[in-house]
């Protein structure tokens, strides 16, 4: 039995400790906002925050997160930066299929935590691990800058 703190609540897991956080969230807690895209830290769809830092949950076992604070997309509306990003995403009509967008927002939130006014190059480098097959990158760039402006 492992206990993880997810979105401010302690949750118990009676599963293999090697289980990636992604599948513990999705299959055990039915927190399906965090997405599976590659399972190999190559696409960013599964990005969550651990103690505020972006982590690929598909390759991070639950055993590595005991005692840490995991935040998922479901709680980003309660976060000042997350909320600003979500609002900017809607204003800029960013999502197409939408499947990658949880991960995009988690990565963008991590960027804005450390860089209050990112330029295109900052955004490209912080977001290059997040694949969007629908090609929403231009609107993501605009939305991140807009969110940064609303937070300033």
């Amino acid at each position: 039995m492992l206990t993880l703190n997810i979105n401010g609540q302690d949750k118990q897991f009676d599963i293999d400790p090697s289980t990636p956080i992604l599948w513990a969230l999705r299959d055990n807690l039915n927190l399906t906002g965090t997405k599976f895209g590659c399972g190999a830290a190559l696409c960013g769809a599964c990005t969550v925050h651990i103690n505020g830092l972006p982590v690929r949950s598909c390759v991070t076992p639950i055993s590595a997160a005991v005692g840490q604070h995991i935040t998922t997309i479901e709680a980003m509306g309660d976060d000042r930066i997350g909320k600003a990003l979500q609002a900017a995403w809607v204003r800029h009509d960013v999502p197409q299929c939408g499947y990658c967008q949880s991960g995009q927002i988690m990565s963008a939130a991590a960027l804005l935590k450390t860089n209050k006014k990112p330029n295109d190059a900052d955004i490209d480098s912080a977001m290059s691990g997040n694949i969007c097959r629908c090609g929403t990158y231009q609107r993501i760039r605009e939305a991140i800058k807009d969110a940064a402006a609303t937070l300033a």
């Binding site: 399906t32 906002g33 479901e74 979500q86 995403w89 939408g98």
Partner: peptide, 21 residues
């Protein structure tokens, strides 16, 4: 016209096939 589904696709609420249980 802005998309009807952009909010749910920005907060993790939009269910996809893979989310159905």
């Amino acid at each position: 016209m802005p998309r009807l589904d952009s909010r749910d696709k920005s907060n993790g609420k939009q269910p996809f096939g893979i989310d159905f249980a």
